[in-house]
């Protein structure tokens, strides 16, 4: 268990300079969630085009893990179909739970794989997944 495993450069980079940070003017779906104990918060907005996630933006505040996960997650799903995004979330969940996962599918999100070695931090990494899940359920 080393700190460098948790706080990888790419994680700190996404924490300090998050991608897809802000708002969508007329989003099709909007959701938010928080971890009451640590105060992490994420809001997400999605724009669909047919079956695809045309755009996704997030805002929030919290620790480096919760915020970088949101940044990496939005990068990973942008342009994908809803079904692909759901499969990706499944793989991400597998990774955080310490199960086998499809690394190819996760791409940069794999940077968060060592979070599982820090049980107290798994819920930080999971927050954006829960928020995204809620937003996808709003898709008609």
């Amino acid at each position: 268990m080393s700190l460098e495993e948790l706080f990888k450069e790419i994680i700190i980079e996404h924490y300090q300079h998050p991608k897809n940070h802000g708002h969508i003017e007329h989003p099709d779906a909007r959701s938010e969630g928080s971890n009451p104990l640590c105060g992490d918060e994420i809001q997400m907005e999605l724009l669909f085009e047919g079956d695809r996630i045309k755009d996704v933006m997030f805002t929030g505040n919290g620790c480096s893990i919760s915020q970088s996960a949101a940044s990496l997650m939005t990068e990973a799903i942008k342009g994908r179909t809803v079904a692909e995004a759901r499969r990706l979330m499944e793989e991400y969940k597998n990774m955080l739970q310490g199960n086998d996962y499809d690394a190819g599918m996760l791409g940069d999100l794999e940077a968060l794989s060592d979070v599982k070695k820090f049980p107290a931090r798994v819920k930080c990494a999971s927050l954006s997944m829960a928020v995204l899940d809620q937003a996808l359920q709003q898709k008609k």
């Binding site: 080393s2 706080f7 104990l37 640590c38 820090f118």
Partner: peptide, 29 residues
């Protein structure tokens, strides 16, 4: 630039136990 939760984890790796969060005092936060 360093969230309290991250401070808590970094300190923990040095054997130092502190608290991070809202301390059951959200109105004060």
């Amino acid at each position: 630039g360093v969230h309290s939760h991250d401070i808590g984890t970094i300190l923990d790796s040095e054997g130092i136990a502190i608290r991070a969060g809202h301390h059951c005092a959200q109105p004060l936060m």
